[in-house]
Amino acid sequence: MKCPFCGTTDTTVVDTRINDEGDVVRRRRRCTRCDKRFTTYERADVQLPLVVKKNGARVPFARDKLRASLELSLRKRPVTVEAIDGAIDGIEERLLASGEREILSQQLGELVMAELKKLDKVAYIRFASVYRNFEDVDAFSRVIKEVSPSGRRKADPA
Rank of each mutant, 00 (worst) to 15 (best):
M1I: 09
C3Q: 01
P4V: 01
C6E: 09
T8M: 07
T9Q: 15
T11H: 02
V13M: 06
N19E: 14
G22S: 07
D23T: 09
V24W: 03
R29D: 05
R30P: 06
C31D: 05
C34H: 08
D35N: 15
R37K: 08
Y41Q: 08
E42Y: 08
E42P: 09
A44E: 12
A44H: 10
V46M: 13
L48G: 04
L50E: 02
V51T: 01
K53V: 06
K54R: 11
N55Y: 04
G56E: 03
G56Q: 01
G56Y: 07
A57H: 11
R58C: 05
R58P: 01
P60C: 07
A62V: 15
A62H: 13
A62G: 14
D64P: 09
E71N: 10
E71G: 10
E71D: 12
L74G: 00
K76P: 07
K76I: 06
R77L: 06
T80G: 08
V81I: 15
A83Y: 02
D85S: 07
D85V: 05
G86V: 00
G86L: 01
A87S: 08
G90H: 04
E93L: 14
R94T: 12
L95H: 00
L95G: 01
A97V: 13
G99T: 06
I103V: 15
L104N: 14
L104Y: 11
Q107N: 15
Q107V: 10
G109C: 08
M113C: 11
M113F: 09
L116Q: 01
L116Y: 01
K117F: 05
K117G: 06
K118T: 13
K118V: 12
K121A: 10
A123S: 05
Y124D: 01
I125V: 11
R126C: 04
A128N: 00
A128H: 00
S129W: 01
S129Y: 02
V130L: 11
V130K: 09
Y131G: 03
Y131A: 08
N133I: 12
F134G: 02
F134V: 06
D136T: 07
D138K: 12
F140K: 03
F140N: 00
S141N: 15
S141P: 09
R142S: 11
I144T: 07
E146K: 04
P149Q: 07
P149A: 02
R152I: 11
R153L: 15
A155K: 14
A155I: 12
P157M: 06
